[in-house]
Amino acid sequence: MARKYATAEAVAADELHDFIRPRHQMVLTTFRSDGSLQTSPVTGGLDEHGRIVVASYPQRAKAANIRRDPRASVLVLSDEFNGAYVQVDGPAEVIELPEAVEALVGYFRAVAGEHPDWDEYRQAMVDQGKCLIRVTPQRWGPVATGGFPPS
């Protein structure tokens, strides 16, 4: 069996966006009030401004943490466990209802495409009391894969 070697490719912002756009499995890391890390598996997308977007609920730990400390890190994963990944760090914000409704439409489009009934979707977001988390990429590591050291 051939060895699989680790890779790490530095990418520019447009290449980062191209990498993230088709990937929706992510791990969001925020900071608890005591400074320790809080990590959540999430479904995310990339909005039209190149920000990572995640739908959530205002009372969830990740939203409360971001309101208190507006920094986050997102690990964007490939569908296959040993596929390429990238860590993205940056300022984060929580968008609350009613302002969140249209941003949640953008989130749905980024993750799943067009909805058959946008009015129904908008109402469901209001009924469920959703919010939207946005992370603006400020720093990112290389797009990497695991494996043996290359040398």
Rank of each mutant, 00 (worst) to 15 (best):
R32E: 12
V135C: 04
F81P: 08
H49G: 14
A12N: 05
L16C: 07
L37Q: 10
N82H: 09
D79Y: 06
G45K: 01
V27A: 14
E15M: 01
V101D: 02
N82C: 05
D119N: 15
D34A: 12
R21M: 00
V53R: 07
G90W: 03
D117V: 02
V126E: 07
G147A: 09
G141S: 13
L37T: 10
Y85I: 00
D117M: 02
S78H: 09
G141Y: 10
A12C: 00
R122V: 08
R139T: 13
G90H: 03
D14I: 12
E15L: 05
E120D: 12
A84E: 14
G129V: 12
G129S: 08
T43P: 01
Q38D: 12
W118A: 00
L16T: 04
S151Y: 03
L97D: 04
A64S: 10
P91V: 12
V94I: 15
V86E: 02
G113H: 06
E9Y: 00
T39C: 10
S78L: 08
P150K: 08
P91L: 12
E114T: 10
Q128S: 15
H17N: 06
R109A: 06
L46Y: 01
G44C: 07
D14V: 13
K130P: 01
T29F: 03
G146W: 13
W118V: 11
Q128V: 05
W118M: 03
T145I: 04
V143R: 02
D47Q: 02
A92V: 03
D69F: 14
H24A: 07
E99M: 01
L104T: 11
V88W: 03
K130I: 05
A61P: 08
D127R: 13
R134T: 12
E114N: 13
R3V: 11
S78A: 13
S151L: 06
R51A: 14
R109S: 03
Q128E: 15
S40G: 05
V11L: 02
V27L: 12
I95N: 11
Q138G: 15
E114A: 14
V111K: 08
A64Y: 00
V111Y: 01
